[in-house]
Simulated assay, not measured.
Amino acid sequence: MLLNSILVKTEFYNKLSNLNFIKSKMLNKNIGLGYFRWIVKNTFFKVFNQKIKLNNKNTDLTEVRKEMTIAEISHLIAFIFVVFFALYKSISDSYWHGFVIMIVNVLMNLYPSLLQQEHKRRIDRLMEAVDCNKSYCGTN
């Protein structure tokens, strides 16, 4: 989170805020992102970040997207950090330790990041539709 707060102030952060690792809905489905979304939505994980919740139609989508970006990049930074730690443990202890660490890392850092990317794409479409409705898009 500390590294993320430093990155927010850079120009590079704008590039990071529009990351899309997996654009295909089918691939997201095949890797089990839907199941992961269900777990987050229906278990105690739902209480972790209340800032990225759409409560009603008056919710500021730009602010929600910003909070999603912060969460996504924080998880990516944590994922990369733990990858190096898992590699170290694989070399110093055993491959089994590194493998177990990586499984937990994927579930606790990579999947949340991918889920945030999917939700950001949905919010972008929603924001585009709202802007289009405000400006009477497609009509003269």
Score class of each variant (00 low, 15 high):
Ser92Tyr: 11
Asn49Met: 13
Phe79Trp: 05
Thr43Asp: 09
Lys51Tyr: 02
Ile73Asp: 07
Glu67Met: 13
Val64Tyr: 01
Arg121Ile: 09
Asn105Ala: 02
Lys53Trp: 14
Ile91Glu: 04
Leu27Trp: 01
Gln117Ile: 09
Val64Leu: 09
Tyr95Thr: 08
Ser90Cys: 03
Tyr88Glu: 02
Ala78Ser: 05
Asn20Ser: 15
Asp124Thr: 12
Asn42His: 15
Leu115Lys: 09
Glu72Cys: 02
Glu128Ala: 06
Ser94Arg: 05
Thr139Phe: 07
Met102Gln: 01
Lys29Glu: 15
Lys46Val: 05
Met26Gln: 15
Val64Thr: 10
Val106Glu: 04
Ser113Lys: 00
Leu126Val: 09
Met1Cys: 10
Cys137Leu: 00
Lys66Cys: 13
Thr62Ala: 01
Tyr95Gly: 09
Leu114Ser: 02
Met127Thr: 02
Asp93Met: 01
Ile31Gly: 14
Asn18Ser: 01
Trp96Lys: 06
Ile103Met: 12
Tyr136Gln: 07
Phe44Val: 06
Tyr95Cys: 00
Asn55Pro: 07
Phe36Lys: 13
Lys41Thr: 05
Thr62Val: 06
Phe45Ala: 15
Asp124Phe: 10
Asn18Trp: 13
Ile22Phe: 07
Ile52Asn: 11
Asn58Lys: 14
Met26Cys: 12
Lys66Ser: 12
Ile52Glu: 08
Asp93Glu: 15
Asn140Ser: 08
Lys15Trp: 02
Thr69Glu: 04
Met68Pro: 08
Asn105Arg: 14
Ile6Val: 12
Thr62Tyr: 02
Glu11Asp: 15
Ser135Thr: 11
